[in-house]
Computed example of a mutant assay.
Amino acid sequence: MSKIYIQGTFGAYSHLAALEIELNAEVIPCKTFDECFVKVSSESGSRMVIPESNRITGNIGIEYLIFKYRLNIYAEHFQIIEHNLLGQPGTSLKDIKDVFSHTQGLSQCSNFIKKNNFIEHVRADTAGSAEAISKTKIKSEAAIASSLSAKIYKLKILAPNIENEKGNATRFLVMGKEVYQPDFGDKKYITSFLFKLKSKPAALYQSLGGFAINGVNLTKLQSYSEQNSFESYFFLCDLDGHIEDPKVQKSLEELGLHCRDFHVLGVFEADKFREK
């Protein structure tokens, strides 16, 4: 049985994603994202399932850890986010006054919360909120969390699918210490990498020319300041294609001429969710 580390507690959306990726994996919760990266960096054969971005609310904020630890990305997984209002067994919607969840869970269900005049309480994560109210057993308190949380903490789903927008999804990355990439074949691939440019005028503009010339599509390009500096930036980038594709190789060679740091994070098959 393989180990998969997640941030949060049992019942978190990361837990749900891990089970969809490998049903029989040993899922191990960590308190922080940092702890996940430290554990996987020190253990051969273990992996982590970590949220990278949400379709509605954007980046989760793990970029600095990706840059620091440089673990290999094996796969991406898009998890549909369906929020539920969870309460004590025997209660109903009219009993609820206070609602607890992660700030993103609250914001993604703001219409439902306003409609019912609930008082919001921000907590560290969704599943942790469910666990907390299962212990306090106060009839007027509810949590916004997954249906898996309801099952684990023996709570009642008072209202299912209360999110503002249906079809919301979080992109998770499966990462580990060992370097692995699939053979180049007739499939859709993503190559993920990070780079830091040499300090010179128009460096970014010049560095990206190779992608345009070779017809390589960039699906993600984001800049982040390094170590609280507004003078040194690194970039995270995803492109459509396999690193062994000659067009991709030529593009990356051109980029390399302008870099003082370049690192391939992973080559993996594109999730079929992208085609929806």
Rank of each mutant, 00 (worst) to 15 (best):
V49M: 14
V49E: 09
P51T: 03
P51V: 04
E52C: 10
E52F: 15
S53A: 14
R55S: 04
T57S: 07
T57K: 09
G58T: 12
G58I: 13
G58Q: 13
N59W: 10
I60S: 01
I60M: 05
I60N: 01
I62G: 03
I62Y: 03
E63S: 12
Y64I: 05
L65R: 01
F67P: 00
F67I: 01
K68N: 02
K68P: 00
R70S: 00
L71E: 00
L71M: 05
N72M: 06
Y74Q: 07
Y74S: 04
Y74N: 07
A75T: 02
A75P: 01
A75Y: 02
H77N: 02
F78N: 00
Q79C: 02
I80K: 04
I80R: 02
I81F: 00
I81Q: 03
E82P: 00
H83I: 05
L85A: 03
L85E: 02
G87P: 02
Q88A: 15
Q88C: 14
Q88K: 15
P89G: 05
P89N: 14
P89R: 14
G90Y: 10
G90C: 10
T91W: 06
T91S: 10
T91K: 09
S92A: 14
S92Q: 15
L93I: 09
L93R: 08
L93E: 03
L93Q: 05
K94H: 08
K94G: 01
D95E: 07
I96V: 05
I96Y: 01
K97F: 01
K97E: 03
K97R: 13
D98I: 15
V99D: 00
V99K: 11
H102W: 06
H102Y: 08
H102C: 09
T103L: 12
T103M: 11
T103Y: 08
Q104I: 14
G105A: 06
L106W: 08
S107N: 07
S107D: 02
Q108F: 01
C109N: 07
C109P: 05
C109I: 13
C109K: 11
S110H: 12
S110K: 15
N111H: 08
F112Q: 06
F112L: 05
K114C: 04
K114V: 05
K115C: 09
K115R: 15
N116P: 01
N116S: 02
N117Q: 13
F118S: 12
I119A: 09
I119K: 15
E120N: 07
E120A: 06
E120S: 10
H121S: 09
H121N: 14
V122W: 08
V122H: 07
A124E: 08
A124V: 07
T126L: 13
T126D: 14
A127T: 11
G128D: 09
G128T: 12
A130D: 04
A130W: 03
A132N: 10
A132K: 13
A132I: 08
I133G: 01
I133K: 11
S134N: 12
K135L: 15
I138K: 14
I138F: 08
I138E: 12
I138T: 11
K139F: 01
K139A: 05
K139S: 04
S140A: 02
S140D: 03
A142F: 11
A142E: 09
A142L: 12
A143W: 04
A145Y: 01
A145M: 08
S146F: 06
S146R: 03
S147L: 12
L148F: 06
L148N: 11
S149K: 11
S149E: 03
A150W: 07
A150C: 05
A150N: 09
K151D: 09
K151G: 06
K151M: 11
K151V: 09
